[in-house]
Simulated scan of single mutants.
Amino acid sequence: MPKDSQNIRLTDKSIKSLKPREKIYTVADGDCLYLVVHPTGLKVWQIRTRRGDGRNHKKVLGKYPALTLAQARERRDWELLNMDQSGTMERMTYQDLSEFYLDHISLDRSEPYVLKLRHRQENYMYPKLGLRLADTITPPDLMDCYTPIAKKYRSLARRIASFNARMYAYGIVMRKVRTNPALMIAENLPEPLPKQHYATLTEEQDIAAFWRNISNKPMVGADALIRFQTLTLVRPSEARRAKWSEIDLAKKIWIVPLMRMKKRREHIVPLSRQAIEILEAVAKYYPARKGLVFPGRRRFLSAQTLLSHIEACTDGLVAHGLRAMASTTLYRLKFVGTWIELQLSHIDPDQTRDSYRHYDYLPERRAMLQWYADYLDALRDGTPIPPKPDI
């Protein structure tokens, strides 16, 4: 039996009383079920069995309290019931199959994208189907999950349905399930409503008021992050997860790794004088904390925190709208479209050429971003708009 295990069955009260220690320790509930307590306070359910060859086998079931004591025991019973003589798990629950597929696509998709897919599964699918064996789930079971979602979020319901169809297809290929109950369901859900553009600002007086308000805030936390994202034209998730190891202050560039990019392509961001000033101010406030430029209480700042700070500065603007605000301004003033689209990291139709354009138009994009930063400052201060760079 693992060290620190106990011979009594767990209760919710006893679980809540378990305090973190300097090292990981485990507490037994019985019948191969254990609760692993980490130094951070994280509590994870785990089953431990012995294979036919005498080797030990561990399997993580989920985190407590997201996976309750009763659910963990039910999940344990399913796992043990479907274990073959060698001690390996043959049949997968819906949650197992989902995590198996998410691990697979994480090799090719960005971390924020995979995290978003996992959150959808955790919020909408796992509570109802997570502990069910994947090959016992029927189309009506899936529709029972999708229908309430579609009443409020039609597009989201279709995305989850499409994800499940791909997940089961992969499960068939990998011999985890025999059939795909998710096929053709997405097409039978309500049509999504017409897509709405991100709320943004287009009038110079509104842009000036926003930049004036955010400039009056302390150069720390979410307010510094908003200014930095505005000046770099990156996506909110890319700015929130920025790391000091990606930034070269001497060369005045920020290289966002492909794993964090939506299009899975490394992105070179030239930094204006004002962007450098933000980084220098932030570094003094919390130097290299967690390796993140804009750390939050646990990891990076949340999207909701970013939105609430933007709303405190202006109405009718969201984090993604900062990119639209810059794009609209730069196109209106007739900057070269290629420079703008490259800075926005929009995919180029010419994929072959795209793979060789690592530093394409970097001097031009640097001049464009410096002009945009000076333009915002001029609007804020009521001074003449700077002339376009001669490039």
Score class of each variant (00 low, 15 high):
L271W: 05
P386M: 09
R353I: 06
L342I: 11
Y331M: 14
I207H: 06
E246C: 02
D12E: 13
A165W: 05
V282K: 06
H57K: 14
R132S: 10
W211I: 00
H309V: 11
L201R: 00
S327G: 01
A169S: 13
L131G: 05
R154K: 15
H38S: 09
E22W: 05
W371H: 09
V293I: 06
N216R: 12
L61W: 01
P139C: 07
M1F: 08
L201N: 04
L42G: 13
R159W: 01
T68C: 07
Y113V: 07
L376N: 05
K23C: 02
P386Q: 09
D12L: 03
T338D: 15
V37I: 12
I172F: 08
F100C: 11
A283H: 13
L306P: 04
T338L: 14
A199I: 04
M184Q: 13
E204M: 09
K195V: 15
F294A: 03
P218R: 07
K63T: 13
L344G: 02
A165Q: 14
V220M: 10
H267W: 02
A66C: 05
R109G: 07
A28P: 07
G62V: 03
Y356F: 12
G337F: 01
P257H: 07
T305L: 02
E204L: 09
V60S: 12
L131S: 11
D135Y: 09
M125I: 11
L322F: 00
R235G: 06
D206P: 07
W45R: 05
G30L: 00
A281G: 08
S355Q: 09
K43P: 01
L333M: 14
R158S: 03
K243Q: 14
